[in-house]
């Protein structure tokens, strides 16, 4: 439960920004994510839901519109920030996450690898106490592990931890308004 912008008490809907749709493991992963969401009183919405989109003219624009419609529908975002084809996150996932952050909606991420870029398997060299990658770009280290702008997002170690954090934040809001916190069934 949470209190929506109209003051109604209902389950919050999470936009699950991810790159799973590209992977063969997608159905199992999404099923697992949705069950975890359910445990924490959250409705997990996978952007592929409501499909498939009919092939034909402007297909990709319609795919974009489909995802955007879901983004507008959701109350907050949980984003899969693991490395994607290299040492960066999936750019589509980040685009969606940035959308939620800019609108001031709760935004969480999860990263299951080694957080600080400096500790990842990346070709790097030290110059006057600063690490640079092989192309001369500084590897920033502000006690966080991600690029500066991602400090606007709470990044957990797992999907479940991100759900737990979201639940905690929603519970805080509920308690402040005089409601009982949500009872998570272990």
């Amino acid at each position: 439960m949470f209190i929506d912008k109209e003051g109604k008490l209902r389950k919050p809907v999470a936009y699950l920004a991810d790159f799973e749709m590209f992977l063969p493991s997608c159905p199992e992963t999404v099923k697992y994510w949705k069950s975890v969401c359910d445990k924490y009183g959250i409705i997990g919405l996978f952007p592929g839901e409501g499909g498939p989109i009919e092939p034909g003219e402007n297909y990709w624009q319609r795919v974009f519109n489909h995802d955007y419609d879901w983004m507008k529908y959701c109350d907050f975002c949980i984003a899969q920030l693991d490395d994607w084809r290299g040492h960066e996150c999936d750019s589509g996932t980040l685009f969606e996450l940035g959308y939620f952050v800019a609108l001031g909606l709760p935004s969480y991420g999860f990263y299951t690898g080694k957080k600080p870029m400096i500790e990842r398997d990346i070709e790097k060299r030290l110059d006057k106490g600063i690490w640079y990658d092989k192309n001369g770009y500084m590897i920033e280290d502000r006690d966080y592990g991600f690029d500066n702008i991602l400090a606007l997002v709470k990044i957990a170690d797992s999907f479940e931890e991100a759900c737990k954090w979201a639940r905690r934040d929603f519970d805080e809001q509920l308690v402040k308004a005089g409601y009982e916190p949500y009872k998570v069934e272990e």
């Binding site: 490395d83 994607w84 084809r85 290299g86 040492h87 960066e88 996150c89 999936d90 750019s91 589509g92 980040l94 685009f95 969606e96 996450l97 940035g98 959308y99 939620f100 952050v101 800019a102 609108l103 990346i122 990658d133 192309n135 770009y137 991600f146 690029d147 500066n148 702008i149 991602l150």
Partner: peptide
């Protein structure tokens, strides 16, 4: 492309999403 095969740097991807929302 940045530190990967066909993905840009994280920040522009995030900031373009934010800009779209705004």
């Amino acid at each position: 492309d940045f530190r990967s095969y066909v993905e840009p740097y994280n920040e522009p991807a995030f900031e373009l999403g934010a800009a779209f929302a705004l």
